[in-house]
Amino acid sequence: MAKWGMAVDLDTCTGCGACVTACHAENNISTVGPEQASRGRAKHWLRVERYWVGEFPDVQLKFRPVMCQQCDAAPCEPVCPTYASHHTDEGLNAQVYNRCIGTRYCANACPYNTRFFDFFNPSWDKPLQLQLNPDVSLREVGVMEKCTFCVQRIKATQVQAAVETRPIKDGEIQPACAQSCPSKALVFGDLSDPESHVSRLARSGRGSKLLEDVGTFPNVNYLNRQAEV
């Protein structure tokens, strides 16, 4: 059984934000407009955090793309009263939109703040809806949504591989964010395969997990920005 994981190379991420828009495009994430955005309702399943270090002129900036960390011990799961947030056999933190009643408890419990609530019925000014991905369900008002590791792409590849009776190749599944990333800072793959690219990166010695001490056992590895070699 595969165990999906991601490696985020903070040394090559340039903070460009292509992944953010790619995620919107792939996953039918609606824009909320300026008024709602100013009220904290913008939905970015993937955000590129930036932090200033130091003061002018000795100042540096750090970028860090943060999406759902697909925690092994996900705090968002046990608190959900309806199993809308639950764990799949492949270690994904799945979100069943139709099952969600909108308690928002999961989002409070998520230490990474990667869960986003639909405060209104998502809408698209016609004909922007023609772009919608038929493989991803639309959400309605009052449900929680979040990064799924582009599970629709995982499933599609699994079905294709099963039809062709062959194993899935490393790198064959690309979430939208990883696919778009110009500098290839995002690497997705099977952590249960020790030879996969993502496994090798996770072992590289630069890897660490975000908020490791909270005990969520996330499946996203952050590869630290290196000093000069």
Binding site: Q36, R39, R41, G102
Partner: peptide, 15 residues
């Protein structure tokens, strides 16, 4: 009728 957005709840203060 309008949606939960008429309250002041927002990301990340959901309660």
């Amino acid at each position: 009728v309008m949606g939960y957005g008429v309250t002041g709840i927002k990301w990340p203060v959901y309660w």
